Computed example of a mutant assay.
Amino acid sequence: MPDEAAASPLPEGRFDGREAFDALLRNAFAAAAREGWKEMVFSDLDFADWPLGERATIEALQAWAASGRRLMLFAQRYDVLERGHARFVAWRRMWDHIIECRAAGKASGTEVPSAIWTPSWFVHRIDPERSRGVSGTEARARRELREAIEECWRNGRPAFPASTLGL
């Protein structure tokens, strides 16, 4: 008998609070591995309160990572991620060939969305301070979120290198 929890669809609708947001992210990481999503976009001011340093997150991302996959990271800044999520930083180094990172330009003026986007599902934290937002599969909402992220991406610059080369 298949594991019903593993096969359950990702949640849709409004969420409120840090615990609900964290649960959505954890579910998304597990679903990415289970369903073999080809592309994911993570976008946030600095990823400070995302559960990216957790062992279970890295295990799910490791199971997801494969040839033909793509992860795009967009942030205002990466210093908090580098200091606070050592496991993720190490995983990012190993999978550099499927990960592209950009940062918002200093004069961008555009607010960085706090979101996960995939071709079939999204999480958008509309109020990051209170961890309130919406998740779902609705095509229009996914398209609008992707367009907002792409606008930031175009105005951004390469950032968060996997390694620092020095002479």
Rank of each mutant, 00 (worst) to 15 (best):
E144Q: 13
W91C: 07
E12I: 09
R132N: 04
S108Q: 12
I149V: 15
R70F: 05
L52N: 00
S163M: 11
W117M: 05
Q62S: 14
R154K: 09
F42K: 13
R140A: 14
R77H: 08
D3Q: 05
P11H: 06
S67A: 13
S108W: 10
S131Q: 11
R26F: 10
G13V: 14
A7W: 00
A32H: 02
W121N: 05
R146P: 00
A32C: 11
R125F: 00
E138I: 03
G109E: 14
G84A: 06
L165S: 13
G17H: 01
W50V: 01
S43I: 01
G53D: 03
L71G: 05
A23Y: 01
R132W: 04
W50N: 01
P51A: 12
R102P: 07
P9T: 01
A115Q: 07
R143Q: 15
R143S: 13
A48I: 08
R26D: 13
S163V: 10
I126C: 12
P113W: 08
P158L: 07
C101H: 07
A66S: 07
A6D: 12
L52G: 02
P119L: 07
R70G: 05
A56F: 09
D49S: 10
P113M: 13
T110K: 14
A28Q: 06
W64V: 07
R77P: 01
Y78M: 09
P158H: 04
S135Q: 03
E138D: 13
E147F: 07
L167A: 15
A66K: 05
V134N: 14
W91K: 11
R130P: 05
E59C: 00
A104G: 12
R18N: 10
W91L: 09
R69E: 03
E129G: 13
D127K: 14
D16Q: 11
G133M: 05
E147Y: 04
V123K: 02
E35L: 14
P51S: 12
R26L: 15
W121P: 06
A107N: 15
S67Y: 04
S131A: 15
I149C: 00
A20M: 10
R14E: 08
A28Y: 03
S120A: 01
M94G: 12
P161F: 08
R154A: 13
I98K: 02
A90W: 02
E39W: 00
P128A: 09
M1N: 15
G133Y: 05
W64G: 06
F15K: 03
W95L: 10
H97T: 14
Q76I: 01
R140C: 06
T57M: 07
S114L: 09
F47R: 02
A31R: 06
A86E: 00
L81E: 07
G109S: 15
S163C: 10
W153N: 04
E151R: 12
D22C: 08
G133F: 03
A65P: 01
C101N: 11
R157D: 06
R18G: 05
I126F: 11
C101A: 15
E100N: 14
R146V: 11
A63V: 04
M40Q: 00
W117D: 06
A7E: 00
P119V: 09
C101L: 12
E82M: 09
A148M: 13
E150Q: 14
F15G: 03
